[in-house]
Amino acid sequence: MKTNAFLVSTLLSLSGLLAGCEKGTPTPVTPGAANSSTTDVEASCAAQGWASQGGVTNGGGTATPTVVSTYDQLKAAITNSAVKVVQVNGTITIPSGGRVSFQDQSNKTLFGSAGAKLVSADQTQAGSGIIYVKRCSNIVIRNLVFEGPGAYDVDGWDNATIDACTRVWIDHCEFRDGVDGNLDFKNTADFITVSWTKFAYLKAPRAGGPGGSNDHRFSNLIGSSDDATADRGKLSITFARCWWSQGCVARMPRVRFGKVHVVNNVFSSSVSTSGVMAGFEANLLIQNNVFENMNRPIDLMANNSTAVQATGNIFTSTTGNTAGNGKTAFTPPYTLSVLSASSVKAAVTASTGAGATIAGNTCASSGI
């Protein structure tokens, strides 16, 4: 009886210890997998502007995010078409030559939690760039900083390129210090909205590149060539409540062919040589923006654009052309809440204004 009592007492004590261990041990989470305690599934809104045309642009909607915090996890999630929402946590460094290829997918969101960054330090022609998005549709990219190593004219890669995609919404992001550019669009890309996004060059440009420009801080190119005539009728893009800030020299944006609505933005780079650039067959509506300390805020270039209409803009301490070409631009097929120019600077430069300034995948500050 003493032996049995001892065994019972021992077993009861052991079971209590095991129960205590089970209660105190957290459930393991697979790295990169969805984790309900850290994921953000709030956003369910759809894009306005040109990205509202041709269908709804809402990315992966409210699908549970796959959380990534390393390069390998990021690449795996982006290239997996079954993953519909990717959440970036922390800073992820893109290795040399590791530019992420995001191709042939639809209905997907890539967003950052507060402070998330994708960073590249490679200035070589082949190894530069962060992400290349090609032949995709219904894509949302939100609340991410894309940071390159600085401008260097080697015909390298942009921080991000949108190639032959339709219905893309880039919202509350920051693109800075790209090697060739910050964010470019080409090859019949269409129905795109860029909202509440900041462009900057914070690092000194590297001189001596074979391209010939010692200061290639050229932010945004729309249309790759005058000969790319397949772009006619495409490249419909809205830039709304964005900020081209210090360090940008030109291409804010530079447009070929496209119907581009530049509305309620701030341009404030004192090193600029050109702001909005009207290239071959460009059709530009430049509406209720603020230009400060800019040289040639509106660059008519070779005067071979289709139409450049500038209306309601504010120019402060600028030099060079501020007018359109006397031709009426397209009429947008959508409705936006257009701010008066006097209200634009305060909205765009606010704490939740242009840039990766929101808490994650939220619609709260994304309306235009």
Rank of each mutant, 00 (worst) to 15 (best):
G312H: 04
S268N: 14
I286K: 09
L7F: 14
S96M: 04
A151Q: 10
F185T: 05
R206S: 13
A46G: 11
N138P: 02
S37H: 12
A116Q: 03
T93I: 09
T316I: 12
N361F: 07
G320P: 15
A46I: 13
I368K: 04
P297T: 14
N80M: 10
S351R: 06
F315Q: 10
Q123F: 00
I130Y: 00
L18K: 02
K327I: 13
T161Q: 11
D40Q: 10
F291D: 08
D122S: 07
G127W: 01
G355Q: 02
D40W: 08
Y334I: 02
P26M: 10
W50M: 15
E174V: 14
V88A: 01
A282V: 05
T193M: 03
V145E: 12
G367K: 08
S137K: 13
T349V: 10
I170H: 05
C173E: 04
K259P: 00
C136Q: 03
V85Y: 00
G129L: 03
A5F: 10
L183F: 15
E174S: 14
S128R: 15
A116K: 11
N265L: 02
T229P: 01
S15V: 12
F175Q: 06
E174G: 00
P149F: 09
F175D: 06
D184C: 14
V100Y: 00
S236C: 10
F218I: 01
I94W: 04
T197N: 09
T318M: 08
D177Y: 10
V86M: 09
F218G: 01
G148P: 06
L118D: 04
L110C: 05
V145F: 05
A228M: 09
T124F: 05
N107P: 01
C136G: 12
N293P: 01
G97Y: 03
A82K: 15
V168I: 15
D163P: 00
C248R: 03
T193N: 03
T39E: 14
I131Y: 05
A77W: 01
I139C: 03
E42P: 00
